[in-house]
Amino acid sequence: MRSTAERVWLLPGVLALLLACVSVIVGPGGLSLAEATADLLAGRDTVPALVLLEIRLPRALLGLLVGAALGMAGAAMQGLLRNPLAEPGVLGVSACAALGAVIAFYSGLVRLVPAALPVAAITGGVLGTAALFVWAGRGATVATLLLVGVAINALAGAATAFSLALSPNPYAFYEVMFWLMGSLADRSLDHVLLALPCVIAGAILLFRMRGRLDALSLGEETALALGVAPASVARWVGLGTAMAVGGAVAVSGVIGFVGLIAPHAVRPFVGYRPGATLIASAGAGAVLTLIADIAVRLLPTERELQLGVMTAMVGAPFLGWLALHRRQRSAPWL
């Protein structure tokens, strides 16, 4: 019973891979890709090969990875809460993950155990998600959820700035920018390796929940009648979201609004099915993140713009547009 139309969720993924290739090409200029690739394949340890492998490639891979994690997490949260404004960035889950990462990093723990960085970020994400679900409740109205999310976001952001101010390192305080308005600049393959297992584990958890998210589309009572326990779905989705987002935030800082825009962008093309949205949104999230990350390198700004600034400049007006259209068209899924 499969048709080509049902494969439509694969499309954003394909587009994301193409953009990742573009991302490798974009840089301060002058790198001969052919030469770099040839050197790399021949195992020659030349400067072009080094730039390609250790600077350009990690950035493109992280664009894919972080974007997919955020897109998928946004779709999962929207599906679970049946709330179109749910998103790890807006609701403070990312900020809590950043707080976890900041504490682990600036305390010096990460120097001893590098894996402490994503683990702490995931822990922060789990606590943030739990606070959100407990505080607002799963059946919360759009407004309640948003208010609670804003509170958590502000609290986590303030706690991050506070922890950074406690560090005796003079640079630490100015790095609040990175953690609250993320970036993919000058990341290395080490960062890819840190984030990859977390994002994959989170994505697998979320992917396994896709049928149960579909079952929730007629409300929690009907889901229960269909043999799906919403409370357990909430736990698994919460954990999956925290793992994917935590892994991403640990290496990129908070990149907001990707998880908000991506699901909305793909939903009409997958018949508004929450499960299919999950997969398509992962691809769309990667596409959005890569486009934004390419844009910050091409824009003629004095200094390279933070990626989180770029996504917020697009995402915040989108949030406003959503709010307006929900009211005007009384369409609860907008």
Partner: peptide
């Protein structure tokens, strides 16, 4: 109270 939450 069953109600479609998405325009399926």
């Amino acid at each position: 109270a069953a109600r479609a939450q998405w325009p399926l």
